[in-house]
Design a protein around this nucleic acid. Structure first.
Length: 267
DNA sequence: GTCCATGTTCTTTA
DNA sequence: CTAAAGAACATGGA
């Protein structure tokens, strides 16, 4: 369900409900959602206070009061909410954390592509930089390293972390770049434009509370509204708002890729 | 029944 | 050896 703007929206909503709360117990944990499987997750967090909650890439990172951390990744269909213990336990609930204010944090994920990852004192060594603070020179250095289609490169979390299928398509449209262009073939000015486009799209989406395409809701149960502002994503066969051409959908790297064939010319 | 899905990782191929 | 392409994961909705 979530890319950077959706995860940011969820983390923002959860922060006042979780920060400074103590974890009293973990009455439910589906063990195959935990990584690594043999980690001391429960033993490590029970009795600890959550002192910080923040987004890194598409991960929601919990820091506890001895500076150890764990994160939750929502995969494609994951959902987090804070509920009273009496609330109905939905199907596909994989984690319940009892808090010290008689509330529970619950993690529901039907497709189970998400995960609960114990970090301990480790860092996120497998992720590229955050796009919202990325400098164009850094983006250029990253893109020069690969021949793959720019669309595919934007989805590679080890290159740039947080962009997913919606915002890759939207950013490429804003930058007027064809999704199949090799990443290493972009000009300096195209990369500057792309960097600005990525930030613009992500900031606007965060302001709108993310995009609700199917079932995404934030931690308060609210839907995002950025799907109203999509220029190309899921607009196949509709007209481009700029040039009135028909938006097309192709497969790139196994993912649906939407673009305007007139505004986004192949080089 | 078919196809598709806001994601990642493992395997296969070149 | 490396990089890239493809399959796999699991569930539900159209």
């Amino acid at each position: 369900m979530p890319e950077l703007p959706e995860v940011q929206t969820i983390a923002t909503a959860l922060t006042p409900r979780l920060v400074n709360r103590r974890i009293e117990a973990i009455p439910h944990l589906r063990s195959d959602m935990l990584q690594p499987q043999d980690s001391q997750f429960i033993r490590s967090v029970v009795g600890r206070q959550i002192i910080d909650l923040r987004r890194r890439a598409k991960r929601i990172v919990f820091q506890i009061d001895n500076s150890e951390r764990f994160y939750i990744h929502l995969g494609m269909t994951g959902h987090l909410s804070v509920q009273p213990p009496a609330a109905t336990i939905l199907k596909h609930t994989h984690l319940i954390i009892d808090l010290d204010n008689h509330q529970q944090l619950r993690f529901v994920d039907p497709r189970r592509f998400g995960a609960i990852v114990w970090m301990g004192m480790n860092d996120h060594t497998d992720l590229g930089p955050e796009p919202l603070t990325l400098r164009p020179e850094r983006l250029r250095a990253i893109l020069l390293r690969t021949n793959r289609a720019i669309k595919t490169a934007l989805l590679d979390q080890t290159l740039i972390a947080g962009i997913g299928n919606i915002y890759a398509d939207e950013a490429l449209f804003y930058a007027k770049i064809h999704p199949l262009n090799p990443a290493c073939s972009l000009s300096v000015s195209q990369i500057q434009t792309l960097n600005r486009s990525i930030k613009l799209v992500l900031r606007r989406a965060i302001s709108a509370g993310g995009s609700t395409i199917r079932d995404y809701v934030n931690a308060d149960g609210d839907r995002g509204t950025f799907q109203m502002m999509h220029r190309v994503y899921e607009r196949t066969d509709e007209r481009c708002y700029l040039c009135k051409s028909v938006i097309v959908c192709i497969r790139v790297g196994g993912r649906s890729t939407h673009f305007c064939p007139k505004c986004q010319k192949n080089e």
